[in-house]
């Protein structure tokens, strides 16, 4: 299964000057959250495999010249972690600004307005403007599925939908094509979603999508709310069954 079952050996470490103990095998992100230390994430989702792509959870680890992704770094004995230095805060802001500059995020006409993780992140990181040139790419809306809609203008390529579809639903309908800023989510062999032969129309991808990229059909501005509680439940059930 996805999350490594920790071996139980006890470890002590410091996160933001707080003495913390955990079990070996646990990630910095998991331990921090257990201890009410907030590290921002967008691509991470409990129950799915670790991706490490959004880079918002980067933290400083004393003695390591490189910043470490909290979602992918396992705690070790005596580790000293800083989660919110001025430098980290600045980098996080820049990353979220870049996401806004990359595609066409127009909150005022978005079905997810008010229920969007990207928008919430901008608020949380106190972003007041975007300093980078906007790309304004011409992107499609895939309206071919009878229950859901994919708007590439609002996609941040976190690949949560790809992972939930492959790892939880087992359909692997979705994947990524292309490189760099031209990368995009596709269905099967880059067909319209509605023509996909593998999609079971389970709707899991819609619910894990952090933005208004994947939504239910028929929703209008601000009406789309995601339900993600199925995921911890499914993961737990499968773990106890196996």
């Amino acid at each position: 299964m996805t999350s490594a079952v920790s071996s139980g050996e006890s470890i002590t470490l410091k996160i933001d000057d707080k003495d913390i103990s955990c079990r070996s095998g646990e990630t910095i992100l998991a331990v921090a959250r257990e201890n009410n230390i907030d590290i921002p994430t967008l691509c991470f989702m409990e129950g799915l495999s670790v991706w490490g792509g959004c880079r918002l959870c980067l933290v400083e680890v004393a003695g390591s010249p490189k910043l470490q992704a909290a979602c992918a770094t396992v705690c070790t004995e005596g580790m000293n972690v800083v989660t919110a230095s001025p430098r980290l805060k600045e980098y996080r802001k820049m990353i979220v600004e870049m996401l806004f500059a990359e595609r066409n995020h127009v909150c005022s006409v978005c079905v997810s307005n008010g229920h969007c993780e990207l928008q919430d992140m901008a608020v949380k990181l106190e972003i007041d403007h975007v300093r980078f040139p906007y790309r304004y790419p011409h992107l499609q809306v895939d309206n071919s599925h009878d229950r859901a809609r994919m708007d590439h203008n609002r996609c941040i390529l976190c690949t949560r939908c790809v992972r939930v579809c492959a790892e939880i639903e087992g359909a692997h309908t979705k994947d990524v094509k292309g490189r760099g800023v031209l990368a995009a989510i596709i269905h099967d062999l880059d067909q319209p979603w509605g023509e996909s032969e593998t999609c079971t129309s389970c709707g899991k991808c819609v619910n894990v999508c952090p933005t208004g990229a994947l939504t239910h059909r028929g929703t209008a501005v601000g009406e789309m709310q995601k339900k993600t509680d199925f995921l911890p439940y499914l993961t737990l059930m499968r773990r106890t069954e196996s």
Binding site: L99, A101, G180
Partner: peptide, 20 residues
Amino acid sequence: MTESCGKCVPCRVGTYEMHE
């Protein structure tokens, strides 16, 4: 920019912005 795999945001968008 054209060889960035697109997995992580800083390289995917950052190389585009630096090029721009």
